[in-house]
Design a protein around this nucleic acid. Sequence first.
DNA 1: TTATATGCAAACAATTTGCATCCTG
DNA 2: CAGGATGCAAATTGTTTGCATATAA
Lengths: 146, 146
Amino acid sequence: MTKTLLERKIQVAGERITPQRKLIAAILQEQGGHLSADEIHRLARRQNPRLSLATVYRTLRWLKVSGLVRELRLNGERHHYEVKRDEGHQHIVCLGCGRVIEFNCGHCANVHGDLADQYGFRITGVRVKLVGYCANCQARKHNETQ
Amino acid sequence: MTKTLLERKIQVAGERITPQRKLIAAILQEQGGHLSADEIHRLARRQNPRLSLATVYRTLRWLKVSGLVRELRLNGERHHYEVKRDEGHQHIVCLGCGRVIEFNCGHCANVHGDLADQYGFRITGVRVKLVGYCANCQARKHNETQ
DNA sequence: TTATATGCAAACAATTTGCATCCTG
DNA sequence: CAGGATGCAAATTGTTTGCATATAA
């Protein structure tokens, strides 16, 4: 039985547990996906209409610095946030519809090692982002061009 | 003898060639590196002090949509721009000093193929970003912790 | 009780845009 | 000469911050 995001956070640092933080953590955890601050805010407001966007950002930073949440720049201008789980999963972003899917990159581990030696770098993170068009969008594009 | 960025751009679309565009293209090409709009602006002003940041952004977009320049988000908030050359070169960013070095990712081509089949995606781009600490910064960090 | 978290509004930084003017083709 | 390009300033967008108030521990 895996711990909730919040339980892990509490474990890490004995900080205050507020309804707002509970709510945001729950949303991140349940939705799983790659939510923007704004999307989280919209969802959270359904349960607490007074919750401010500032609090969303503050909570995300709080979760981020403690290493429980990852901040990604998948497309466009805004950040997206996801609960950290397995390392090594990466993202494919559809340029047509914005959909993001995850995949596991078997090759990434290799890249790690190759470079450490070559440049004397100590690698702490690998981000692989593929962009392209999903099956749907390929079809749609094809039709539009007719 | 390879063509200048601007010559390629003219070839692509018969658009207007202005001193500002010439200057910005030259800077991108000569500096090679990963310049932010602001850095380009600063450099360009040494030769044309009236050149506006807005024009830098407009020119970068113009070069980007024609596929001659790549827009990257390497670290922090701002975009960085580089002239497109070989596909397949990727970036390592030092979290200590911000230095960016490039490397060629032999594994990337494989990733391409693997996924096309698996998800029906047509992959158009692969971005691999490694973050970590360069040799210098590892040393420095070590000293500070003493 | 008391420090920490929140909400709100204002501040910021990066980027974009409206518009009058300029200049390339 | 005409329409696209520029400069400037104002607008937008995403994110952060200051401060008075509310609240978890």
